[in-house]
Simulated scan of single mutants.
Amino acid sequence: MGEDYDELLDHALDQVPEFTAEKERFETPEVDIDVSGNQTALQNLKSIADELNRNPDHLMKYLLGELGTAGNREGARGVFQGRFGKESVQDRINRYVEEFVLCPECKKPDTKLVKEGRITLLKCEACGARSSVRKV
């Protein structure tokens, strides 16, 4: 019986795919900025929010607070009062990803924002970790 077990084990090991180091699959989306007059438009706000699996209103509210300005959503884009460079807005998006998208435990983007009572939690679908996040 020992020989059958060894054969089965060898066969099973042959079926397991080899581990290959995979390039990080998640990249922060790049912003598309249009500055005209004293307004800055984030043309791809909705597509960024969709890629991050977040509500565009939540992302817009965060950006308004971080940029310290007024603004509003106009369809798929966000409009901010004031002139902001691409690097400035991209930096805020990167910070948003760190705080509200990536799991603090496993660093994967497979997370959801869930509200439990008055507390908002970042729940990781990959590792199951849960951590509280600040209110926007």
Rank of each mutant, 00 (worst) to 15 (best):
G37A: 05
G75S: 07
H11G: 06
V114G: 02
G85R: 08
H58Q: 06
G82D: 00
I119Y: 11
R118N: 14
S88L: 04
G75N: 03
R25L: 14
K135V: 13
H11T: 10
K115G: 02
S131C: 09
R130Q: 15
K61T: 09
V16M: 12
T40M: 00
P56F: 02
L42V: 06
N94H: 05
T111S: 07
E87S: 12
N38C: 04
A12C: 08
K123H: 15
R134N: 11
G85M: 03
L8D: 03
R25W: 06
N55D: 15
K46I: 01
Q15M: 15
E116D: 15
N53C: 04
P109Q: 11
A129C: 12
R73T: 07
E125N: 15
R92W: 01
N53K: 14
T20A: 09
K112M: 10
D34Y: 07
G85W: 01
P29C: 04
K123P: 02
E125R: 15
K107Q: 15
L52K: 03
K135Q: 13
L45R: 07
P109N: 14
D34W: 05
N72A: 11
E7W: 13
L59F: 02
F26T: 12
Y5G: 03
L113P: 06
E116F: 12
E3W: 08
G85K: 10
L102A: 07
H58S: 07
K46M: 07
M1P: 09
E18R: 14
D6C: 05
L122C: 02
L102C: 02
E125P: 06
E7V: 07
C103P: 08
C106E: 05
D34N: 10
K115S: 08
G85T: 05
T28F: 04
C127Y: 10
S132Y: 08
E27K: 13
L45I: 11
K86C: 00
D6K: 12
I33K: 03
Y96P: 04
D50P: 00
E99V: 05
F100M: 07
P104E: 07
D110H: 11
K108G: 14
S131D: 13
M1T: 12
D10Q: 14
T40Y: 03
F19S: 13
G71V: 00
H58N: 10
G2D: 14
T20G: 08
F80A: 01
E7P: 01
N94I: 05
F26K: 11
E22I: 14
T20L: 09
A21V: 14
K123Q: 15
G78C: 01
T20H: 13
V79R: 13
K46C: 02
T28R: 08
C127W: 11
P17V: 10
V133G: 10
G68Q: 03
E51V: 01
V136Y: 09
Q81S: 11
Q43C: 09
G128T: 10
S132D: 14
L121I: 08
A126G: 07
T120E: 09
L67I: 02
N72S: 13
V35D: 01
C106L: 07
L52D: 04
E7S: 12
R130P: 00
V35M: 03
C124G: 11
L42D: 01
D50Y: 06
N72I: 03
